[in-house]
Design a protein around this nucleic acid. Sequence first.
DNA 1: TCTGAATAAGATATGAATTATCTTTATTAT
DNA 2: ATAATAAAGATAATTCATATCTTATTCAGA
Lengths: 146, 146
Amino acid sequence: MNISRASDYAIRGLVYMAKQPAGTVCFVKDIAKNTNSPASFMSKIFQTLAKSGIVNSFTGTKGGFTFNTQPENITIKTVIEIIDGPILLNRCAVNKSACNEIGICDVHYMWTDIRKILINALNSYSIADFATDKKNKMEVLSGVMQ
Amino acid sequence: MNISRASDYAIRGLVYMAKQPAGTVCFVKDIAKNTNSPASFMSKIFQTLAKSGIVNSFTGTKGGFTFNTQPENITIKTVIEIIDGPILLNRCAVNKSACNEIGICDVHYMWTDIRKILINALNSYSIADFATDKKNKMEVLSGVMQ
DNA sequence: TCTGAATAAGATATGAATTATCTTTATTAT
DNA sequence: ATAATAAAGATAATTCATATCTTATTCAGA
Ligand code: SF4
Ligand code: SF4
């Protein structure tokens, strides 16, 4: 039921990037430091993000990462899918051959239903939502905070 | 993000039980056979369900399991929590000491929000929903099925 | 042009959790 | 007694999450 640590790090790493001036080339070292995450692990994570195309990577001295997609257009669902793979609560959700009960299973439908709800929720937040001042964000996201 | 196999088995095992006449004492052997699940594993799972109190266990010949809570009142959330533990998408959701970013973390609020949505969805289905004829169930749950 | 530092990319290792299975014990009906 | 059942505990196999280590790439400066 948990998302992985890797996804948590990825999201917060991208939020850190989104807080920098647009176009800034960010080093893994700095991203890791500012998110209290292991640099070596974060490096791996950003490799995966780069492969997916949502960030650019530049090797060598002065290398690093920049956004290739606007933070507004990167949803939490997108990030989790890149890092953890397809979002699913039960194996039958996406892969028909993952379970041979499909067709006779009473509860299969429920999982597709709940999965839709979850995906919708994860899609309703973008990286950009967290890049602005925290107080403002809270007010925007929750409507009213006391 | 996945629920465990154990929870999947538990849910389908309980649905099988709910299909039997009320009060029937069910053997793990039969529950496992009718759900295509490993009997030894299912035995372990029902031990846990019994400990939680939602089913009764009877040892000895003609022993087995019966409901201790009406299937209508056993939601999917209940079952998953018994088997997999508290429902959470990220470690910060329930345990404040699980992450030392809490307090400074930009995205913490999001996880509490999405968690609520997920829990609500899991609570909207009960074991009894799947114990009746499949076609009827589909119609009830989805409103209109084509 | 060389050398070295900074960086990402790729390969490997560790550890924990999941998914079972096996064995023994306790209980009960016949 | 015997057979049938679950409970309990130990252990094994597998998979996955997590993290580190090694290699390749790029660039700046001598
Ligand atoms: S819910 Fe049904 S179809 Fe889905 S994995 Fe479980 S048994 Fe298979
Ligand atoms: S979202 Fe923030 S508070 Fe929650 S686990 Fe991740 S870093 Fe910690």
